[in-house]
Design a binder for these strands. Sequence first.
DNA 1: ACAGCTTCGGGGACCT
DNA 2: AGGTCCCCTAAGCTGT
Length: 574
Amino acid sequence: MDQAPYVSSPSDKSADAPVRQAGKKPIVTPMMAQFFEIKAVNPGYLLFYRMGDFYELFFEDAEIASGALGIVLTTRGKHLGKEIPMCGVPVHAAQDYLKKLIRLGHRVAICEQLEDPAEAKKRGSKSVVKRDVVRLVTPGTLTEDDLLPAGTNNFLGALSMISHGEFDFALAWADISTGETFVVDLGENRLADELARLNLAELILAPATEQKLGESKILPEGLVRHVAMAAPETFDSEEATASLKSAFPQIEVTGFTRAARSALGALIAYVAETQKTASISLRAPEVQTATGLMQIDLATRTSLEILATNRGEAKGSLRHTIDRTVTTAGARLLARRLSAPLIVPDHINKRLDMVETFVADTIARETLREHLRQTPDLTRPLTRLALERGGPRDLVHVGFAINSARQLAEKLAGMDDLPAGLVELAQVLDAAPGELAVRIKSAIEPSPSVLVRDGGFVREGFDAELDEQRGLATKSRTVISELQAALASQTDIRALKIKHNRVLGFFVEVPATHGKKLLDEPFLNKFIHRQTMANAMRFTTAELGELEGRIVRAQGRALEIEQVIFDRLLGQVL
DNA sequence: ACAGCTTCGGGGACCT
DNA sequence: AGGTCCCCTAAGCTGT
């Protein structure tokens, strides 16, 4: 079994070390005290500690991450007389690094600044900004598209064990990027087969279960990619039942066995712990009865090469060979069905009737395939939106998906001799909330930014004040180009240009040969020197500063309005 | 294409 | 206590 790398942190020893030595200056700086405190409650995670524009890693975390990511290992300050190893990544580029670390099997705790630095200053000049972990990123709890595999589910599982002479097991699993949740009761003999079928990204175990599995060698090496050790209480049937009840108030918990409740409870607790404040959105668990699906033992599964070849490659597997799906959701469904074939004749016939319809009707098949090809994945955008990690593009995809579902329903309904399965499907699809799609379409640009904070995603004409603010920003830009002409003629420098970059904002640039002129009367007071380059000099003026301020304010207000519009639509989606 | 500087936002050391 | 100066990743400029 491949254990996730465990990071033993220096915090274990130092967390409660005295901050001051009697009469001497502090030996642990306030920031390090905060770091150790946060580190101590998240053992086993690399701590991404937010400092301004960077996520910083310290001590062993820094050594591990710098090696794994190929970034520079440096130092920052001292702790107990020794230099503190540090490495860091800029926040805007953190996603790529996070992806690499997760791929390598590391687990990462994201620690953010929870207040404005000005607030901290108010508490005293030596206080540090309040920080805490907002999310734990593990292989089984990903929601970001570029961290997730496209064509397969990313399953997180929890295995419970109940001993009464013999051992009863239950396995609960969920894809938190889609919300699908399942549970099954298992005997010891079927454990390996079931885990092989599901190919979990991460499995949660209580220490006793891990020990038992290790001793009895029930599971072959490498079957479980990453193990997360959970506190035994989360599997405890009372606590588990409580978390189950609060996660799914609508379902009857007594319908599950004790082992199933235990596994589900631990799964829910783990999701809640890793997602912190973000609301979890798992769907009601579906009980997988062993009777409806074919049991395939591990050896058979491996030699059938259903999802992967014996060597573990996708290429050459059954799935890879026959997969003609056109959507990622379709690819995931195909993988699931191939892994667990039906065995009940009625179910098989119902599915075959649906297949037959499309085998016979080439035109309908091609029309629907073409239609599906243009349908975005709905489940993952929805989950991101629910976890407050979604953006305008997710909203648009939800709208597209709704329209697409309704059109699909229409196309199905227009076909003759529809089998029962497809009639049911058409009904489900037709129930999609079309009005919501209309609202999204009327408010949001067809291909908007991914992030809300980038702005510019609300359509022109949707909100009068937004249009007005955008107009102000545009108008100020026109004024700036007029200003350039005016300044060029006033100074008699034809090469005078007004430019913009992220550092200086708007500035006046003149060739070096003319620069000196602006440093003297009569321009001395008007042009404020900012930068001298090899071939040019850069200045700002009060007027330019004011225009820039106007643009910045208008853009800021516009963004606020867009945020409100986004939040309102988000409320209607969820 | 590439070297070298600057940026971001914090914390800390060392002053008064 | 408060002010000033210095420091530090990766990345993105600027200048050659």
